[in-house]
Amino acid sequence: MKYAHRVTAIAAISVALSACSGLGVQPWERGVLARPDMAPNSAPMTNALDDHIYFSKEASSGGRSFAGGGCGCN
């Protein structure tokens, strides 16, 4: 059963990656993507502060990064 799950997971990742292979740009087309505001985590300080607040005020955590705690606020 575990083996089946593993095969399914590998297959899913492979399909996802191969689907991605049709997307993308050439190296010389990346000017806009290289802008700081286009980085996925373009505001790490803001995200760190937000994650801490919402972790301590709501029942959810993680997603963008690891869900683990680190404080006694929840």
């Binding site: 996802a16 740009v25 993680g62």
Partner: peptide, 15 residues
């Protein structure tokens, strides 16, 4: 706590 995370970042086009 043990956390595992797997993710894909994909460029779609130049924007």
């Amino acid at each position: 706590t043990v956390d595992a995370l797997v993710g894909v970042t994909q460029v779609i086009d130049r924007n």
